[in-house]
Computed example of a mutant assay.
Amino acid sequence: MQNFLIVGFGKVGSSLYRAMATHNRFNILLLDAKKDFKEEWASFLPAHSFFRNIVNIRQKSFEFIAICTPDDRINETVSQLQDFQLKNCAVFHTSGNKPAELLNPLRDRGAHIGSLHPLQTFNSMFLPPEVWQGITCTFQGDTKLKDNLQKIFDPLKTKIVPIDYQQKQLLHLVATISANFQVALYSWAEQILKASGIEPPDLNTWLGPLIRQVSTNLNQHPLSKILSGPLQRGDLNTLEDHLKLLKKYQKAADIELYRLLCQKLLENLEFEIKDRQKLKNFLEHYET
């Protein structure tokens, strides 16, 4: 059995734990000084595997250490780990925005280091191993560590893609836009309904099928082929009606957001948009 330590037991750390627990080769320990063990964790995690004080595990040797703490605690964790036996230990953090080089002090003590960032959303703790199924993880760091991690994740068909730090930051930006800003748009839609006096019993009941179909379309077709709606068909009258409704129920900033998103779609020449130039002229000169 190989010892695997996960430092930082939040949404990513607990979900990584469940994925690694599918391997019979690992004895997994968890460390988080900011949390107490909770009874509801017991169905996933034995209490004797969870530690709050790093002193209690400092004498153990680990083949793998995953740092899943918030970004502002990585340096502190690295400092604490320098007293561990690190020769040939594989150490990685899961931050999407911080470089692998934060772990250089551990490399100096013999560790193989890297940064593994899953392009996935983790909205709760203890997500099942399937959340890693077929996803892409970006990797920056030592090649030997990347190869070892790929072997570990192979059963889940997780793809580990080596990139440099600048590419890593850009991909984190893109992931944030793709995932988090979707939620912002859903929230905006809900605010418009509430401002108009319409109270849906559950936004997912009304808009969920539409949202899921867009996701299905993206899985089945190129991005350039999935755009539909009034902008795509060049329906200037409907766009103008939408802007008037926003003016009635929302702030001027929301009109600007609607216009900006339309313009962003128009910028992509791969979309088949009817009367593109007429739409651009209208949006550029529309007065709020």
Rank of each mutant, 00 (worst) to 15 (best):
V91M: 05
I54F: 01
S14K: 07
F139N: 04
H221K: 15
Y286Q: 07
A33K: 12
G208W: 11
W132F: 15
K98T: 12
K87E: 13
D202W: 03
L193V: 04
L185D: 00
N97T: 14
E130N: 09
Y165P: 00
S124Q: 15
I160E: 00
F37N: 03
L227I: 13
G234I: 07
S115A: 15
P200V: 11
K274H: 11
T158M: 12
A33D: 07
G229M: 05
A175D: 07
R233H: 06
E39T: 13
R73C: 14
A66M: 04
L127K: 11
H23F: 06
F37V: 08
L149S: 05
S228A: 15
T158K: 03
P128A: 13
F64C: 06
V91F: 02
V7G: 02
K34F: 12
F126T: 02
L86S: 03
E284T: 10
G141R: 08
K144L: 14
P209E: 07
N148S: 13
G229P: 01
I163V: 15
T158Q: 05
L29E: 09
D254H: 11
L31F: 05
N97I: 15
I211F: 12
A66Y: 02
A47N: 03
F92Q: 05
A66Q: 02
A47S: 10
N24Q: 14
K159C: 05
H242A: 07
E190W: 07
N75F: 07
K278T: 15
Q150R: 11
E130H: 06
N3T: 09
R276Q: 04
L218F: 13
N219H: 13
T136Y: 09
P230Y: 01
E240Y: 02
L265Q: 10
K34V: 10
V161P: 00
T77D: 04
S15W: 08
Y186F: 10
I152K: 03
N88Y: 08
F26K: 06
F37L: 04
G134P: 02
Q2G: 00
I226W: 02
L16F: 09
A111W: 03
K38P: 00
R109A: 05
L45Q: 03
P99S: 12
Y258R: 09
N27S: 13
A21C: 07
I54D: 01
